Simulated assay, not measured.
Amino acid sequence: MGRRAVLEGLATGVLAQPWRGVLIHAADSLNLPTLAQAALIHVGPPAALSGATSLALHGISVVADAVIHLSVPPAKRARSKPGLVVHRAEYEPSDVIELKGLPAFSLDLALADYLCAGDERTAFAAVDQAMTGLPPDHCRTLRENVRDRLVDRRDRRGIHRAQMLLALATGKAESPPESILRLIVVQAGFPVPDVQYEIPTVDGRLLYVLDLAWPELRIALEYDGFAAHEERHERDAERDERMAGRGWITIRATAVDLREPSRVLAELRDAFKLRLGHHA
Rank of each mutant, 00 (worst) to 15 (best):
D224S: 01
R269C: 00
F226A: 15
D270S: 12
G245T: 08
R235W: 08
G245K: 13
A271F: 06
R269I: 03
Y223E: 00
M243R: 07
H233W: 15
A253W: 03
A255G: 14
R246K: 14
G247P: 08
D236Y: 10
E238L: 15
E267K: 03
I251E: 09
R259F: 00
E238M: 15
E238D: 13
A244E: 15
E267I: 03
L268V: 07
R269L: 09
D236A: 05
E234I: 09
E230Y: 11
A227K: 13
D257E: 10
R252Y: 09
R246S: 11
T250C: 01
A255P: 06
E238P: 06
T250I: 04
H229Q: 09
R263H: 12
E231V: 05
D270Q: 12
I251G: 04
R239G: 01
A253H: 00
L268S: 02
D236E: 07
A271I: 04
R259D: 14
R235V: 13
E234G: 01
E230S: 14
V256N: 02
R252D: 06
A244L: 10
V256K: 00
V264F: 04
D257R: 01
D270M: 08
H233I: 08
E234W: 06
L221I: 09
A237D: 14
G245N: 14
L221K: 02
R246P: 01
